[in-house]
């Protein structure tokens, strides 16, 4: 400890690089949030469906993803797929892999939302003349997504934090930038301090937006 003086000034020259990193991280997070949300919804519906095959596929999907490390899933897609002749851009791989990875917890919370919708709502909408599909899209899904919104937010916060692993496949998002800058400037303490703060701001922003939305859509059963 003794004698170390913080020096952020030497890092100023890298601010452009940092900004690019921030933009890339936001791209990864937003893209994978969208994928994970819709995929999670699809999986939840499959898990609740009457079809045995759909239930089986969804269960295996969720269990495999929840019980394997994200880094390995990422490497599997990035280094494994080209062996089969499938070449995909690193950013696309990152977005898809993170989206798939987060679809598992999203499936679980959306499913809990679906299960919380009482049979009375199904019957009331059936009695009004809604078809099964209309009942689902007009009544059941809107209710369950509202119920699942809060836990979904915490999944999204997790997603933002996990996105830092994507530097492992050569992506220059902020973690990748930090690695590079730290090697060039030899100022790891300052750099990772900044990184901690940046991730705090990211996740705080996610919760802030989520709280604002939640106030608008929250329901009491």
């Amino acid at each position: 400890m003794g004698g170390y003086t913080l020096n952020f000034r030497v890092l100023l020259q890298y601010s452009g690089l940092f900004l690019q990193g921030v933009v890339l991280t936001i791209k990864i997070c937003v893209g994978s949030m969208i994928i994970s949300f819709f995929l999670g919804m699809l999986l939840a519906v499959m898990r609740q469906s009457k079809s045995r095959v759909a239930r089986f596929v969804s269960t295996v999907w969720v269990e495999v993803l929840r019980n394997t490390p994200f880094l390995i899933q990422l490497f599997f897609f990035y280094y494994g797929l080209p062996q089969l002749g499938i070449y995909v851009d690193a950013l696309v791989v990152a977005i898809i892999a993170l989206g798939i990875n987060s679809s598992a917890p999203n499936c679980e919370v959306i499913r809990s939302g679906l299960m919380a919708v009482k049979t009375g709502y199904y019957e009331a909408s059936a009695a009004l003349g809604f078809s099964k599909f209309q009942t689902f899209t007009r009544v059941v899904l809107p209710i369950s997504l509202r119920l699942a919104f809060k836990p979904l937010t915490s999944n999204f916060v997790n997603l933002v934090l996990t996105s830092s692993v994507c530097y492992g496949i050569t992506l220059m998002e902020i973690m990748g930038v930090a690695k590079t800058v730290s090697a060039r400037s030899n100022r790891p303490f300052e750099i990772y301090l900044i990184l901690l703060v940046v991730y705090c701001i990211f996740t705080y922003l996610v919760s802030f937006v989520a709280k604002a939305i939640d106030r608008k859509i929250q329901i009491k059963l």
Partner: peptide
């Protein structure tokens, strides 16, 4: 079901809609 409207013992107004939307949802859709 259009011919015979039904009301249940347990009220099941749709919780994500206000009263007006509860009333207009079915006729507008169906």
């Amino acid at each position: 079901r259009e011919t015979c409207g039904m009301v249940f013992q347990q009220t099941v107004l749709f919780p994500h809609l206000d009263v007006m939307d509860n009333l207009t949802l079915a006729p507008c859709t169906l």
